[in-house]
Amino acid sequence: MNNSDKNQIWDLFTSDKKSFCVISHTNPDGDAMGSALAMKLLLKKLGHEAEVLVPNIYPDYYAWLKDADKIIIGDEQRDKAVDCIEEADILLFMDLNKVRRVEGLDEFLLASDAPKILFDHHVGPDEVFKLQFARTDVSSTCELVYEFISEFDKSLLDKDIADCLYTGIVTDTGNYFHGNITAGTFRITADLIDLGIDVLEINQKVYNTFSESRIRMLGHSLINRMEVLHDKETVVMYLTKDDLKKFNDQEGDTEGIVNYGLTIKGIKISALFIERAQYIKISFRSEGDVNVNQIAVNYYDGGGHKNASGAYFYGSIEDAILRFKQALNEIEL
């Protein structure tokens, strides 16, 4: 990203009325939800038409965010999702670096001639994006959205946008526990509080409204599905399809489980393997200078950040875990 990209994006946002399709990734998390909804609210303020599109349903603990109930869910509203893409003047991608992360809709996105704009904080973005506001030295895409709005017209920020941005920041940092947290992250948070957000209320909605089955699945993960590799300072956890069925897994129920591995004294790496219908979904977390992104990129179909990355594996969960253990033996972390 360069300043000319940022300025060109703002020029587009403040030009004649346009239709935007604001898109984020499969299994939308707090940063995906917060950044996409904040951008929709901004675009509406600037006089544009805007819809948010995600490939599948989001966790219910984000349903309180402004206009979350108006999000187009790709695998439930396919015709509406395709119309959003094909009728848009501009495709605006939030919190993803690869178009293929919009599962089930990527072919329509790539076929569109509409300009593709990216706001993101992951490494290695696709080359299809005409304009980018992308940096890897920030906590979240929501932090970038705040910086973008503040630089050009801070008066456009309001409580609804602030609620969205705080949600992305607090979740992508694990409640300010990991990620690229800087003094600027806390200054932004203070500004959002000044805009009227209720930190205690949002934290309650995001972290303390879980179902009983989710908590029981967490307990099962820690008691029955966790292996500690003391010599590698690593924790490996997994959940099978039968586990997910037993605990009535809902979207978002496995979010955050991987972080528990790092709460063990002396552990520097935590990995969670989840057996889904068509692939194994993997989450990696690490402490300090330990770079788990190189495992996600070099051993799996994945990527992300130094201390927090994700990946997919197309095979058995046993083979996915075996490959991880081989990676621990082969690379210098």
Rank of each mutant, 00 (worst) to 15 (best):
S4H: 14
I9Y: 11
W10A: 11
W10G: 09
W10C: 10
L12V: 03
T14I: 13
T14K: 10
K17V: 14
K17C: 13
F20G: 00
V22D: 01
V22M: 05
I23S: 01
S24L: 02
S24T: 08
H25P: 05
G34Y: 09
A36E: 05
A36S: 13
L37Y: 05
K44H: 10
G47L: 01
E49N: 13
A50N: 07
V52D: 09
Y58D: 09
K70R: 13
I71Y: 12
Q77E: 12
I85V: 06
I85N: 04
A88R: 01
D95K: 07
D95G: 10
L96M: 08
K98P: 13
V99N: 03
R101N: 11
G104Y: 03
S112T: 07
S112M: 10
D113E: 13
P115Q: 01
K116C: 00
F119W: 01
L131V: 05
F133K: 12
F133G: 06
S139F: 07
S140T: 07
T141Q: 04
F152S: 01
D153S: 10
S155D: 11
S155T: 12
L157D: 04
D160H: 08
L165H: 03
T167V: 07
T167Y: 07
G168M: 03
I169M: 09
V170H: 05
F177L: 15
N180V: 10
I181H: 11
G184W: 06
I188F: 11
T189L: 08
A190N: 13
D198T: 07
N203S: 02
N203V: 05
T209F: 08
E212A: 12
I215F: 11
G219H: 10
H220Y: 03
L222D: 12
L222I: 12
M226F: 03
L229H: 04
L229Y: 07
H230N: 15
K232W: 13
T234Q: 00
L239E: 06
D249S: 14
N259R: 08
T263E: 08
I264R: 07
K265G: 15
G266N: 04
E275Q: 04
E275S: 01
E275D: 03
E287K: 11
D289C: 09
V290I: 11
N291I: 02
N293H: 03
G302E: 02
G304L: 06
H305E: 05
N307P: 10
G310N: 00
G310M: 02
S316M: 04
D319I: 03
A320Q: 03
L322P: 09
Q326F: 15
N329I: 14
